[in-house]
């Protein structure tokens, strides 16, 4: 028996919004420690790694490890049937071929359940080594989203260049070029607005805008984001999901031909 309950359906909707741009379907691996998902987009350029801890749920039970392959468009249809403040419970029997979503309104006067068929997905898991990154940038997630959106008007790629002075995002194309520089801030009063840089050595890498913009669909999950970079390794963009877990995106850098 698997059962996981969240007081707010809105949280699960945000998690789904954060992955469905990149993935059409995904396997949710459930164990007694929580729910994990690791999947690459169809072009194998980016990877989503989601972790939801058991203790972040209001109720969590997983008697046997279970992998639930879900079509994310179908899951989206079902979650549209929930109000954001409805409680959601995800349930499945051991070895089940379907999963049930139960939505309960605040006052319990409306209870609905939706059953969805599960899929057998061939998943390719990648072994991701622990890396000591040359630089880690912590910044407001809304600012990162804005920068990706603004720069993608100019070109298909963004160059991210991090030094001890700050971080520079730049893009260029047919209409011209754009540069955005962020300096490290020391505003302790408004910690969530700070930009901080842990730098071992300066790094400059180039990334496709399209994927960065998809990653920023996680912005509603967290007001902070971190960007971890080293020369010639994939970028890691991480959003902490408060009290529940995290979502990490990996993106292969572009290289000079």
């Amino acid at each position: 028996m698997f059962e996981a309950r969240l007081v707010s359906s809105g949280t699960l909707k945000k998690v789904l919004d954060a992955i469905k741009d990149l993935l059409n379907e995904a396997s949710f691996d459930c164990s007694d420690t929580g729910i994990q998902l690791q999947a690459m987009d169809s072009s194998h350029v980016s990877l989503v790694s989601l972790s939801l801890r058991a203790d972040g749920f209001d109720k969590y039970r997983c008697d046997r490890n279970l992998t639930m392959g879900m079509n994310l468009a179908s899951m989206t249809k079902i979650l549209k049937c929930a109000n954001n403040d409805d409680t959601v419970t995800v349930k499945a029997q051991d070895d089940a071929d379907c999963v049930t979503f139960v939505f309960e309104s605040k006052k319990q006067e409306k209870i609905s359940d939706y059953e969805m068929k599960l899929m057998n997905l061939d998943q390719e898991h990648l072994g991701i080594p622990e890396t000591d990154f040359s630089c880690v940038i912590h910044m407001p997630s809304g600012e990162f989203s804005r920068i990706c959106r603004d720069l993608s008007q100019f070109g298909e790629s963004v160059i991210i260049s991090c030094t001890k002075e700050g971080v520079r995002f730049s893009s260029s194309g047919d209409i011209g070029s754009a540069n955005i520089k962020l300096a490290q801030t020391n505003n302790i009063d408004k910690e969530e607005e700070t930009v901080s840089i842990d730098l071992q050595e300066p790094v400059t890498l180039t990334f496709a805008c399209q994927y960065l913009n998809s990653f920023t669909k996680a912005t509603p999950l967290s007001n902070r984001v971190s960007l971890s970079m080293s020369a010639n390794v994939p970028l890691v963009v991480e959003y902490e999901i408060p009290d529940l877990g995290h979502i990490r995106y990996y993106l292969a850098p572009k290289i000079e031909e």
Binding site: H44, V45, L126, S157, A252
Partner: peptide, 14 residues
């Protein structure tokens, strides 16, 4: 001109 490699250029399959 830049080239877009896949993640398999960096990570091994499990």
């Amino acid at each position: 001109p830049t080239n877009q490699p896949t993640l398999m250029n960096f990570f091994k399959k499990k």
